[in-house]
Nucleic acid binder design. Structure first.
Length: 783
DNA sequence: CAGTGAGCGAGCTTCCGCTTGACTT
């Protein structure tokens, strides 16, 4: 008979704990939640005080029966799921589903996985906190109601298969509103004045001193007037101010900060970071990677300290205990840190190594001393002017934590590296080499990256460490948001330069506004957002989650019943859903751009059945409307009348060849030529508006030649099998199924019999879609 | 695999948070 059975959430954790405890303990894992609301239908009994209908999902049946068996054989069962709302609910679901007995079931919690912590937990068991469980039930039921009542409204009013929810809809809102801010942004320019002076360094060698004017000028005239003044002015050192400053290290990583830093420093996507971190966790190299806590265990503090002493010395040590300030944090785990602080690197893939080193540096740095700096500012007086130039220099007096790690920032402001300034004396005269007034423009707000969106969501208390990555996938899978790049725009700017006695006036050009891997809203994303915002402003409110969290806290403290809290919400929410279903219009996001100068009919853009379209004329008119699809890089929100009119110039007849028309158009996969029922892609270098008949024939001939080379041989009496050259090398096809050719086989020598042999050996490769992300995984779970 | 843009109106889609697999190209 088994003496003690401990159940935790994660199998890796189970493995670690089992090592700490003796033979009397067996540790199993529940793999997270073991049951959930029924997937079919809403899964809530509205007639019966919102009674949730819980079901063990098919992929959890096996683990539940294994756990049930184990609990029957155990003397004492210890429920050791995390100490937060979800963890408490997991414990309760286990208790309920496994039909455990109060007499021999104990609830324990620990925040760090050390022998002491676990032994201590076992010595201090408690019972399941049903109020906390109820807070989780309220959370779960609220999310189900919001998601499963709002989504069908979208199916009816916008497009089937769409979705809405407490978290995802607000995430989309952030992106849509940022895009509109960018569209409406009007850059303002000002003139920044900088000067280069001649002076001497400590050894008497001539050096340049760069300084910037404390004042920016809003107009060219003012800037010019100032330079005129400088022409005959004297420059002298007015004062020298030296100030000591300090820099402190950032706290250790949480899920959100790890995702941000891995994106900035390593270029990882949010989901990539989580996958790599998961592998590090499973191989025991780091602590748990889904956490909102910046707390480090005593063990981690001690081993970090020892590591810093041996690496840099006692004076680099500064033990720090950080406090989590994040809204709604539940702190069931430690911060993300290396399991063993003395391992500076690990074995593994390049990605694993890089991410581990990042985590190691961040953790170690968080326990190191402040960096001490000395900032020197030299103020330079300009005779006859109220303004002064300032030269700044910064010197590191003691590097402290900077020895290992410096946090990155998102803003790409031109941070000029400031070093040591030359030794100067107060009152010393300075000779200017040149003084430049350069026109600068205010910056558009940046689009969100995956990681900066996570940071914003965390700041608003929306979503949890385990859902940041999936949420970002969802809003992209629903096609509300697209990840993409934006090429730079050229912009002219003005430079006035005083050199010697002459002021020159130049126009220069710069690239601006380039963005990489940023989140853009789609037309459908904007239409859905505007619709939800109009009819369900409460749900879309940035404070909605924070407000319901307060409600959940009250439930957890036993101040209110969870069902009455849900009742209050539902009685308000449901009638709005009904009303919107009945009384709102279908949403197509139509925008009228003006009139078509040729026909004089109205030109509008809207979302059609297959995506965004432009339309000349209206359905009410006798003459049927004419349609054209928008290009992928265009949006309903920002397209102009001129751009829309361009779209109707395609398809364009470019002439005929072999007695048939050649037409150029743009399809889903880009521009193409259509000729005699066949399609020929247009290379990127060809402009579909410019292609001539000669060029089109060239492309057609080239494609046919390629086609010819594609077929290596045809086999079988009726040519059932074709051996072909494909993008990934040779292969053969039969009945529309493709088969691999084994390495080392010359495809030209394949016979019909040999192919049939190969076909029998290769099971029909299932043409399933990608399994990653929510959709594929779900489809599989259902089977 | 690209062209469409309308209605007989079947049956389907969907949430957020816990946790790991097993899929090929």
């Amino acid at each position: 008979m088994l003496k003690n059975l401990i159940i935790v959430e994660s199998p890796s954790k189970a493995k670690t704990i089992e090592k700490f405890l003796g033979k009397d303990y067996h540790v199993m894992s529940s793999f997270g939640h073991i049951r959930d609301l029924a997937e079919k239908g809403i899964g809530i009994d509205f007639e019966n005080d919102y009674q949730p209908q819980y079901i063990v999902s098919s992929d959890k049946k096996k683990i539940v029966s294994e756990l049930k068996k184990a609990t029957k054989d155990a003397e004492v069962i210890w429920l050791a799921s995390d100490e937060d709302r979800e963890g408490e609910a997991i414990a309760w679901h286990l208790f309920d589903e496994l039909k455990l007995n109060k007499d021999n079931t104990k609830r324990i919690v620990f925040h760090e996985i050390t022998k002491d912590a676990i032994v201590n937990a076992i010595e201090n068991p408690r019972t399941i906190d049903i109020n906390l469980v109820d807070a989780q039930q309220a959370r779960r039921v609220l999310d189900r109601i919001v998601g499963f009542e709002l989504s069908p409204v979208l199916w009816r009013k916008v497009r089937p298969s769409l979705s809405a929810g407490r978290v995802q809809s607000v995430a989309v809102r952030l992106i849509v509103e940022r895009e509109r801010e960018i569209n409406q942004f009007i850059p303002e320019s000002s003139y920044r004045v900088s000067a280069i002076f001649n002076t001497k360094d400590v050894n008497g060698q001539p050096v340049e001193l760069k300084a910037e004017l404390s004042q920016r000028f809003s107009s060219k005239d003012e800037a010019n007037a100032f330079l005129e003044k400088c022409r005959n002015a004297n420059f002298s050192v007015d004062s020298i101010v030296t100030k000591p400053t300090r820099k402190s290290p950032a706290p250790p990583f949480t899920t959100s900060t790890l995702q941000q830093e891995a994106a900035r420093k390593l270029g990882f996507s949010v989901s990539q970071t989580m996958m790599v971190a998961q592998r590090l966790y499973e191989s025991g190299k780091i602590t748990y990677m889904r956490t909102d806590s910046v707390n480090l265990s005593e063990l981690a503090l001690n081993t970090s300290k020892a590591e810093i002493i041996s690496m840099a010395g006692q004076n680099y040590v500064h033990t720090r205990r950080f406090n989590t300030k994040t809204k709604g944090a539940q702190e069931a785990h430690e911060a993300i840190r290396p399991t063993y602080m003395n391992a500076h690197t690990v074995e593994g893939t390049a990605q694993e190594k890089k991410l581990y080193e990042l985590i190691w540096k961040r953790t170690i740095a968080s326990q190191m001393a402040d960096a001490e700096l000395e900032k020197t500012s030299v103020y330079i007086h300009v005779s006859g002017s109220q303004y002064q130039f300032v030269a700044t220099g910064e010197v590191i007096v003691f590097d402290g934590f900077l020895k290992v790690y410096l946090e990155s920032t998102d803003d790409e402001s031109d941070a000029e590296s400031e070093g040591l300034l030359p030794a100067l004396l107060q009152g010393e005269g300075l000779a200017p080499i040149e003084i430049t007034a350069q026109q600068r423009f205010s910056q558009k707000p940046p689009r969100y990256s995956e990681a900066s969106l996570v940071r914003k969501l965390e700041e608003l208390g929306i979503g949890r460490p385990s859902t940041y990555a999936p949420t970002i996938s969802t809003i992209q899978n629903r096609n509300y948001v697209e990840k993409g790049d934006r090429v730079a725009d050229k912009r002219d700017y003005n430079v006035l330069k005083l050199k010697g006695d002459k002021i020159t006036d130049q126009i220069k050009s710069e690239n601006t506004g380039a963005e990489k891997s940023k989140l853009f809203p789609t037309d459908i994303g904007m239409v859905v957002n505007d619709f939800l915002l109009e009819y369900f402003p409460d749900i879309m409110n940035y404070n909605f989650t924070a407000d319901v969290e307060k409600e959940f806290d009250n439930i957890a403290e036993g101040k209110i019943k969870w069902t009455s809290s849900i009742d209050k919400f539902y009685k308000h929410f449901h009638p709005i859903v009904e009303d919107t279903m009945k009384n709102s219009e279908r949403q197509v996001g139509e925008r009228i751009l003006g009139t078509d100068p040729v026909s004089g009919r109205q030109l509008a853009v809207k979302i059609g059945r297959f995506g965004p379209i432009a339309q000349i004329g209206t359905a009410e008119e006798e003459e049927k409307p004419v349609f054209a699809s928008l290009r992928r890089d265009q949006s309903i929100e920002s397209i102009t009348l001129e751009e829309a009119l361009e779209l109707f110039k395609l398809p364009r007849n470019v002439g005929d060849y072999e007695g048939k028309d050649m037409t150029v158009a743009i399809g889903r996969f880009g521009p193409y030529i259509r000729h005699n029922g066949a399609f020929y892609s247009l290379p990127k270098t060809d402009d579909p508006m410019e292609v001539t008949a000669e060029r089109a024939i060239e492309i057609i001939v080239a494609k046919r030649e390629e086609e010819k080379n594609r077929i290596i041989s045809t086999l079988g009496e009726n040519a059932e099998i074709q051996v072909l050259n494909g993008r990934f090398g040779p292969y053969f096809t039969c009945d529309k199924v493709n088969y691999k050719i084994p390495k080392g086989t010359d495809p030209a020598t394949l016979t019909f019999e040999k192919c049939q042999e190969l076909m029998a050996a290769q099971p029909e490769a299932g043409t399933k879609k990608k399994a990653f992300g929510g959709k594929g995984a779900k489809a599989k779970a259902k089977k």
